[in-house]
Design a binder for these strands. Structure first.
Lengths: 200, 200
DNA sequence: TATTATCTAGACCGGTTGCTATAACCAGGA
DNA sequence: TCCTGGTTATAGCAACCGGTCTAGATAATA
């Protein structure tokens, strides 16, 4: 096998499988079959074993996801319109069999948050970086810094939740609902009393 | 072992372990150790095996979570205040080692949405029922029916996402941010143009 | 007491898991 | 050509996986 590619192929296969089948649900032999790499190479490149491989996979998945989100955000200058592009891409991914899971690290994060500190931290970092991309887009759209930061994080949470619901329900409705609710979600804070407002 | 309890003990152990360690990450032998039940009983009560047990576990987890959310929602009549109680309970759970995962089925849902149709459907049903509880609370607080339905679903998504981020980051900040953003999230729709608003 | 249904208990099975160990292969450089 | 380091290849390991099977225990009933 081409040496330039072996490590990369292993990481690519791991990235895909960990995202779509989970950490515990993916065996190393399956990664090897998917990548075509020999078992010796896996431990040669990742002496730390499965966990070390997962760290590399999280890194790669993060970069891929972040590049995709940046690309979609660049399709419009106005934040709401741009984030709608991101969501439209996710809706498309749900309709392409099984691809939506490649846009999230939630499963891996949930599986490992109590069982592997290095993996928990890697996922946390990935989430922070993604939230920062949303934050930057809001800031570039004129949101005040503090509001942009809050919006970025709230977006992160809501998008991850909508992905889970869409996958579970096998329905784009949660992502579509989020698209329609974006203006409220991102509306700047301009209320004074926040507990007794209820509906107007 | 007391026959009245055996099945229940197996389901309780399964419910806890599936929620905290995931479906693939939990072995049947571990459930047996946790419950004290003999292996023969597991297959006696669940001839369908692991998947059948998981269906019962999802049912039980759902009921437990729904009861808890209803209890918390009942602490205040006004929806925002009530939902803040729910979130406060979650924040408390995060601070009690490992308990927050018992308030979510997201991990199990993600793991099984492509690999088991019965389990996907059971999780989907659980999510729908939970969203309906939120919806009912909003409606009882005076939200128009359509708005209450949207709010319930958006809440569902955002809460699940905030749970994941809080667990991954080992920090209550995402749940706390959601608490503070609730009025905006649930604000009724009163805008006309939704794409060029940006910040005021 | 015998029968029957329910439930318990645990040995066993083939397969998979992550990892170890070791030898062989291969390309590049002296 | 020989040497060396990087890489490949594969056998083997203990443990675990979900599930099967069978006998025994128990309680209720005729």
């Amino acid at each position: 096998m081409d040496q330039v590619d072996t490590r990369g192929k292993i990481v690519a296969a791991a990235s895909y499988l960990f995202q779509t089948k989970g950490y515990a649900g993916t065996g190393l032999n399956e990664i090897l079959r998917e990548s075509g790499a020999p078992k010796g190479s896996l431990y040669y490149y990742f002496p730390g074993g499965k966990e070390a491989l997962a760290l590399a996979a999280i890194e790669q998945a993060s970069h891929t996801m972040q590049a995709k989100v940046r690309q979609n955000l660049a399709l419009a200058a106005e934040p709401v319109a741009a984030i709608r592009q991101v969501l439209a891409d996710m809706i498309q991914a749900l309709q392409n069999d099984g691809q939506l899971l490649t846009l999230s690290l939630s499963m891996l994060a949930l599986e490992t948050c109590h069982s592997s500190e290095p993996l928990r931290q890697a996922c946390a970092r990935s989430f922070r970086e993604m939230a920062a991309i949303y934050t930057a887009k809001l800031a570039a759209g004129g949101y005040p810094p503090a509001r942009a930061a809050e919006g970025g994080q709230l977006l992160q949470a809501t998008i991850e939740g909508a992905i889970i619901l869409s996958l579970t329900q096998k329905d784009t409705a949660p992502l579509q609902l989020l698209q329609s609710q974006l203006p409220d979600l991102l509306k700047p804070r301009n209320w004074q009393a926040d507990s007794a407002s209820g509906p107007d």
